[in-house]
Design a protein around this nucleic acid. Structure first.
Lengths: 150, 150
DNA sequence: GTGATTTTTGCATATTTATTCAACAATTTT
DNA sequence: AAAATTGTTGAATAAATATGCAAAAATCAC
């Protein structure tokens, strides 16, 4: 599980910070209690299909980017499956319970891969709340996410 | 001018071939009579905001990618200005005359940055033909492109 | 459980990419 | 036109990233 949790954390980190190098990512992961080397990060990054893009300040940072490879999202799905405990719709909200520490990463890529009419998302450590325009859309999304769980 | 022509060629090359490394790009450019080193290519790639993305075969290739930096497209505009001689609409087509060898690169990124209702594009060495659904859209596009010329 | 098989990882290193610095070319200023 | 400024480049090298290989960990078959 450490593997999925780590990759989830990587998604969260690159979405919330401007990570310029794999060594920097290694340091951030260390702060989050993932003791890991650059070599493994290189592999994770390839698996997640991440790449560096140019920011407006002329620096490069890692980002989730639409790639040729559609299978890449399969990787995300497998993280999703490992991380998610339950998905429930309440009014216009969907509440997702996750393993500890994985709500953040999950939120980031549910956000990115915008398959659904999501207004926004907030998360704690093990809970993710997705906000929808209507109860109906929330129910649809909850169903879609539950289906994903296989 | 060699600079713009070279960068235009780079756009063409990465759009039509799977270029994996800067050295490979250097060899391709050599074939196209641009004698250039990897160092300069590294700079060109940064200027053009290109990055490597994962292909479905698990390899990386260079690609044009939507970045944070909107100024990036300014770079494209400046290549456009240097390359284009004239833009004319005829029926539902727009014919763009360019400097020799630059029609290909131009077509590639006009295609990518899909600002306009373009159906398709074909090009020779110094002529680029853009195909639109209607004469009206072709005329609009021709006007937009002429405006770009500053 | 044991042993076989597969997966994940770190280390060392190869490969790839970015940058420093000096030279040269182009452009502007005077 | 010379001098000064600015932009472009290559060579060498620094920095960053990927990978071969062996070891450790996890998973599976029995």
């Amino acid at each position: 599980m450490a593997r999925s949790a780590r990759q989830s954390k990587i998604l969260e980190l690159i979405s919330t910070k401007e990570i310029e190098t794999q060594d920097e990512l290694a340091r951030e992961l260390k702060n989050a209690n993932f003791e890991i080397t650059q070599a493994t990060i290189s592999r994770d990054i390839k698996e997640l299909g991440l790449t560096k893009i140019l920011t407006s300040s002329g620096k490069y940072k890692y980002a989730i980017v639409g790639s040729d490879a559609q299978q890449v999202s399969n990787k995300y799905i497998s993280i999703f499956r490992e991380a998610v405990i339950s998905v429930k719709a309440i009014l216009n909200l969907v509440v997702v319970k996750t393993l500890k520490g994985m709500a953040g990463g999950l939120g980031c890529f549910i956000d990115k891969l915008n398959l659904i009419d999501l207004v926004g998302a907030v998360n704690g450590d093990d809970t993710l709340m997705l906000i929808f325009p209507t109860a109906m859309l929330a129910a649809d999304a909850a169903k879609a996410l539950n289906d994903l769980q296989g």
